[in-house]
């Protein structure tokens, strides 16, 4: 359990890699912006990209304290859900799993769609939910500005959907219900 005074930012890139996001997060300016917003800890799940943070942690190490913020990173963990639910802010790639896991946990979210993905429907989902006011969507180069102007209180809570409607329609289609 995190200490009560701890306010963690969790950065996640999912099961692949997203080096542009990790590189943007590995910045003193961003770290200061996060600290200015009252966050005390930064945890980065960096995936299998080759880029390792070296600005906000001592080179060659996976954790450290910089500008008064505790920072650590790792490649992957089977329990990303635990990191998400205990975070005060999640900065995530725009995969639907991470997005909805964060939204339904009620944790404020900034998504960064990966511009390198082909047929990029991740952007579509991020923009849709941003337009509905549930999260903030930013390109990698806009991340710093997005953090600086971030106000979690302006986000609208996401009401979890339900598969019941689809299940009922399938029951009807197959003849189980009239």
């Amino acid at each position: 359990m995190p200490a009560a005074s701890e306010r963690t930012v969790f950065v996640t890139v999912g099961t692949t890699k997203f080096e542009a996001l990790v590189e943007r997060v590995d910045s003193l300016e961003l770290l200061r912006a996060l600290k200015g917003k009252g966050y005390t800890k930064l945890v980065i799940q960096k995936g299998n990209g080759a880029y390792c943070p070296s600005v906000i942690v001592p080179k060659g190490q996976t954790k450290g304290t910089t500008e008064g913020v505790d920072v650590e990173y790792f490649d992957y963990s089977p329990s990303l859900a635990t990191y998400i639910t205990s975070a005060a802010l999640v900065i995530s790639h725009a995969g639907s799993g991470s997005i909805f896991e964060t939204l339904t946990a009620g944790v404020p979210l900034i998504v960064v769609p990966n511009p390198l993905l082909m047929d990029n429907h991740q952007v579509e989902l991020g923009e849709q939910l941003a337009a509905m006011g549930h999260l903030v969507s930013a390109a990698p180069e806009q991340l710093l500005a997005a953090v600086q102007s971030f106000d979690a209180s302006r986000l609208k809570p996401y009401v979890k959907g339900s598969a019941a409607g689809m299940a009922a329609a399938i029951d009807k289609q197959l003849g189980f219900t009239p």
Binding site: A163, A164, A167
Partner: peptide, 19 residues
């Protein structure tokens, strides 16, 4: 695979699986 598999299993969660 990936997100597709996750969504499909979520739907199955809600379906009457004995049917």
């Amino acid at each position: 695979s990936g997100g597709h598999t996750a969504e499909m299993l979520m739907l199955m969660d809600s379906m009457g699986r004995e049917r």
